[in-house]
Design a protein around this nucleic acid. Structure first.
Lengths: 156, 156
DNA sequence: CTAGAATTGATAATGAGTCTCATTCCTGCA
DNA sequence: TGCAGGAATGAGACTCATTATCAATTCTAG
């Protein structure tokens, strides 16, 4: 996890396809896909793991902190980025599920790191079914669910 | 949810049994189960739903904010209380699972409220099985998992 | 080219949660 | 019962992640 060179499995084509997708999403909602926003998104795409704001600014030091926070917020509200509250000092950010696929998190209680994991579809299906029942029973309308594991990562 | 009179399903016997249980847990770890701590726990037991610090202080105004935060922290570290990061301004607190049973949360994205729900054991079992596989595969050692629904509550 | 709106970035402000410290309260022991 | 030493308390100061402000800059439609 200290390995800086770790990158998500994104080749150049997928990357620019994502940019295009995000760009039109922003435009639709009356926002511009500016340089700063692209760089923000690109940092997240290249890292391929949830990042805190300090992580992001360190990865791309030309990003101003205040703008980064503001743009993160815009992107979250546009459904491009998802904010994860892991309990540490900082929030984590990652590409939203429409872009990254549905997945879950391994949250290390020692070092605070977060890693993505995918569950097999059988489980997801059962969970969904169960969640539908809950919704019907309680009148709650679910938008999404989060199933995260809290424990200790392999390094800790 | 604005209903102040809502109370968890705890009768007086269960309540003092819980107090005894918690008291010995604290004593074991070299802490005292003082008045302030008992009142803190009692507020959570009576409400029966996750509460923020302002909720708690409002429910029992003789609790000092700084002491409440400090004691909440002690109780969390002793495994009596669990902290929930729902994404709003405040953390939520509730009795820990050994006392309240394993359950999940309905988190309303409009009003920020949190409600407890129990899933059927079939799902829990499958989830556990799946989580074991994940652990084996990734080297992550899970302590617990959180499966929460994000959406809109019946009132919103 | 230009007006109006969106964006930027430096900086100030906000506020949840934590820390400090003098005082008070317990608990074990003589 | 009295006492010493540690634990707990509460008021207030403080930290620091995040947000708000605002003047300057950049886009974009016309």
């Amino acid at each position: 996890m200290t390995e800086q060179s770790r990158q998500g499995a994104v080749d150049k084509d997928l990357l620019s396809e994502l940019h295009a997708q995000i760009g039109s999403k922003l435009t639709q909602q009356g926002h511009r896909y500016t340089n700063g926003r692209q760089e923000l998104v690109e940092a997240l795409m290249l890292t391929g793991q949830p990042m805190t704001l300090p992580d992001i600014v360190e990865a791309d030091p030309k990003l101003a902190q205040s703008s980064a926070y503001r743009n993160l917020d815009v992107l979250v509200r546009c459904g491009v980025i998802r904010r994860i509250n892991a309990g540490g000092d900082h929030s984590y950010f990652e590409l939203a599920e429409p872009l990254l696929g549905h997945h879950h998190h391994l949250i290390c209680m020692s070092c605070g790191s977060i890693e993505d994991v995918h569950f097999d579809s059988e489980i997801e299906h059962l969970v969904d079914k169960s969640l539908s029942e809950i919704s019907a029973r309680t009148g709650f309308t679910p938008t999404t669910h989060s199933l995260d594991l809290h424990g200790h990562c392999a390094d800790c």
